[in-house]
Simulated assay, not measured.
Amino acid sequence: MTFTPPLRQPCPPGACDCDRERLLAAADSDLRILRLTRQEEKVLVERLERIDSLADLERLQEKMYAQLGIRLEITPSLKEVKTMRGIQIRVEDLPGLCRKTRLAIPKAIRRALEQRPEIAFELLNARDLLRDA
C-alpha cells in the first residue's frame, strides 16, 4: 500500500488562475505545489511571520523551493528604501500555485520584517546598501 499525500482542493471556478486542472492532466508535471493544502498554507504563513533572522528566512526560502518548487525573490529597491515597501518580495509564477497563496506569502514576510526591522537591516546590509550609513 502506497501513501499519497493529500492534494489541495480546487479553487472555485473563476476565482483563481492556478491552472490546477491543466497541471493534473499533464503527465510530466511537477505536482509538489499541489501538496500545499489550505491547512499547510496556514502553517507556512504562520512560520514565515515568525522568522527571527535573515538566515532563518533564507533557510525557509530553500525549503519552500525544495519541498514545493516555490521560488521566492526578496530584493531591496535599487533606489532608496525608506519603508518595508521598498523591499520587493516576489513569488515566481508557478502552475498550481493559488493566487491567494501567491499574495499571502509576501504579506507574511512583510509583517515579519515590520515586527523585526533588524532582519530588514541585515537584508540591506547583505546587498551592501548600508555601506555609507
Results as ranks from 00 to 15, higher is better:
residue 102 R to G: 03
residue 36 L to M: 12
residue 50 R to M: 11
residue 21 E to M: 08
residue 64 M to L: 12
residue 81 V to H: 08
residue 17 D to P: 04
residue 2 T to Q: 10
residue 46 E to G: 04
residue 87 I to P: 02
residue 9 Q to C: 11
residue 46 E to D: 15
residue 26 A to K: 07
residue 38 R to P: 03
residue 48 L to I: 11
residue 12 P to T: 06
residue 61 Q to M: 15
residue 16 C to T: 13
residue 50 R to N: 11
residue 27 A to H: 02
residue 87 I to N: 04
residue 13 P to G: 01
residue 70 I to C: 02
residue 32 R to W: 04
residue 64 M to Y: 00
residue 25 A to V: 01
residue 77 S to M: 07
residue 17 D to A: 07
residue 86 G to T: 06
residue 102 R to Y: 08
residue 80 E to R: 13
residue 8 R to L: 13
residue 35 R to C: 15
residue 50 R to H: 07
residue 13 P to C: 10
residue 46 E to I: 02
residue 76 P to C: 02
residue 98 C to R: 15
residue 39 Q to H: 13
residue 50 R to P: 02
residue 34 L to G: 09
residue 90 R to H: 04
residue 92 E to A: 13
residue 38 R to T: 01
residue 67 Q to T: 12
residue 47 R to E: 15
residue 34 L to F: 06
residue 54 L to A: 00
residue 15 A to W: 06
residue 12 P to E: 13
residue 72 L to C: 00
residue 65 Y to A: 02
residue 60 L to K: 06
residue 2 T to R: 07
residue 49 E to Q: 14
residue 47 R to T: 13
residue 52 D to F: 10
residue 10 P to A: 06
residue 30 D to Q: 10
residue 87 I to H: 02
residue 76 P to E: 00
residue 32 R to F: 05
residue 98 C to K: 09
residue 53 S to K: 01
residue 54 L to H: 01
residue 69 G to L: 04
residue 37 T to H: 01
residue 44 L to F: 00
residue 53 S to C: 01
residue 82 K to S: 08
residue 81 V to N: 05
residue 57 L to W: 11
residue 94 L to D: 08
residue 92 E to H: 12
residue 62 E to C: 04
residue 50 R to W: 02
residue 12 P to D: 10
residue 7 L to C: 05
residue 77 S to P: 09
residue 84 M to R: 06
residue 10 P to Y: 06
residue 68 L to M: 03
residue 68 L to Q: 02
residue 64 M to P: 05
residue 31 L to H: 04
residue 45 V to F: 00
residue 12 P to M: 12
residue 100 K to C: 06
residue 62 E to I: 13
residue 72 L to M: 04
residue 40 E to F: 03
residue 20 R to K: 09
residue 103 L to D: 15
residue 19 D to L: 13
residue 24 L to H: 01
residue 21 E to S: 11
residue 6 P to M: 03
residue 62 E to A: 15
residue 51 I to Q: 00
residue 22 R to G: 15
residue 25 A to G: 03
residue 55 A to H: 12
residue 57 L to Q: 03
residue 105 I to V: 12
residue 45 V to H: 06
residue 32 R to N: 14
residue 54 L to C: 11
residue 94 L to R: 07
residue 101 T to N: 04
residue 32 R to A: 09
residue 42 K to L: 14
residue 77 S to Q: 08
residue 39 Q to S: 14
residue 71 R to H: 11
residue 88 Q to D: 10
residue 106 P to N: 08
residue 57 L to M: 09
residue 4 T to K: 05
residue 36 L to I: 13
residue 84 M to F: 08
residue 8 R to I: 11
residue 82 K to R: 14
residue 10 P to L: 09
residue 5 P to E: 03
residue 22 R to D: 08
residue 44 L to P: 00
residue 54 L to D: 11
residue 96 G to S: 04
residue 68 L to Y: 14
residue 68 L to S: 03
residue 104 A to C: 02
residue 70 I to Q: 01
residue 8 R to E: 10
residue 4 T to D: 14
residue 17 D to I: 10
residue 8 R to T: 14
residue 7 L to W: 00
residue 39 Q to W: 09
residue 48 L to A: 11
residue 26 A to W: 10
residue 54 L to E: 02
residue 7 L to S: 01
residue 104 A to Y: 01
